[in-house]
């Protein structure tokens, strides 16, 4: 089966639905029309830009360019994870914790997969490396953002309980154990749910894309299982690392709760 190439006219047809929705919501005064249109335009512009860049990189296949794109993706993901916090660590610590964790989990998982599982030559072949890294970074970022947000919010709200435990001689680790556990769960639940629902309730996006592009469903399924496992491991270890770094930052070496290291985000 050959991939049917879409023309800009085809995309314009698809846009009619969005425009109709925008007009309808504007008439009903629901107050989302403007945001909807802006988001739709952003989608088109951002994806076209990425498409152009990827076309160039795929043609060039130079390691430097691929590494540069990967680094940009990592930094943007780190910034996004930090921006989603209601109470942020001061001094860029939240950004650092998120970025380091994503580097450790998403990058290591991607490289291992390219070298050991897919065994593509060279290992940084962009058709494999960029989409893999993108999916891992996206999911890991969501996990880390959710987990750090839960960690800092709960630490703030339950400061009295944490300090009560410290005052009775608990270590920082014991005093924050419950909150840590909840934060880990918050970060990993979306991924666990996605694995449990895959194929039954939702057809995962990557698999759908591969089938549309002409792969046999069986090949698409195998790749999807690979991706799910990678995302599970990447998100889990990334979240674990970020929560560990974050929980450590909440205390000093005398096991004191240091909430002044958090500040409320101005939104």
């Amino acid at each position: 089966m050959q991939l049917i190439s879409l023309s800009f006219a085809d995309l314009a047809l698809a846009a009619i639905g969005v425009i109709a929705l925008a007009v309808t919501t504007a008439m009903l005064r629901l107050g989302v029309a403007r945001t909807l249109v802006v988001a739709a335009i952003r989608t088109a512009a951002q994806l076209c830009l990425v498409g152009l860049i990827l076309e160039a990189v795929f043609a060039e296949r130079a390691f430097v360019w691929i590494a540069l794109i990967a680094l940009t993706m990592l930094l943007l993901a780190g910034r996004e994870a930090a921006a989603r916090q209601t109470r942020r660590f001061t001094g860029g610590y939240g950004f650092a914790a998120g970025t380091i964790s994503m580097f450790l989990s998403a990058f290591v998982t991607t490289v291992l997969t390219l070298v050991v599982v897919i065994r593509v030559e060279p290992w940084y072949t962009p058709q494999y490396a960029i989409p893999l890294l993108g999916m891992l970074l996206g999911n890991t970022m969501t996990g880390i953002a959710l987990a750090l947000d839960r960690l800092t919010q709960n630490a703030w709200r339950e400061a009295a309980v944490i300090e009560a435990r410290l005052a009775l001689g608990a270590t920082a680790g014991q005093a924050v154990a419950d909150i840590r556990r909840e934060a880990m769960r918050a970060g990993m639940i979306p991924m666990i749910n996605a694995m449990a629902a895959a194929g039954i309730i939702s057809l995962p996006g990557m698999m759908t894309g591969q089938i549309l592009a002409g792969s046999s469903p069986w090949e698409a399924v195998k790749y999807q299982i690979l991706i799910m496992f990678l995302i599970a491991a990447g998100t889990g270890f990334g979240t674990l690392s970020a929560v560990t770094l974050g929980a450590r930052r909440l205390f000093d070496d005398r096991h004191r709760l240091r909430l002044e290291r958090l500040r409320r985000a101005t939104s």
Binding site: V161, A164, A167, G169, T171, D178, R256
Partner: peptide, 19 residues
Amino acid sequence: AAPAWRRAVAYLPAEPAWW
């Protein structure tokens, strides 16, 4: 160690918290 100090020198806050 800080936890050992606080076990020996124990602080009872005005509004004790329970977990």
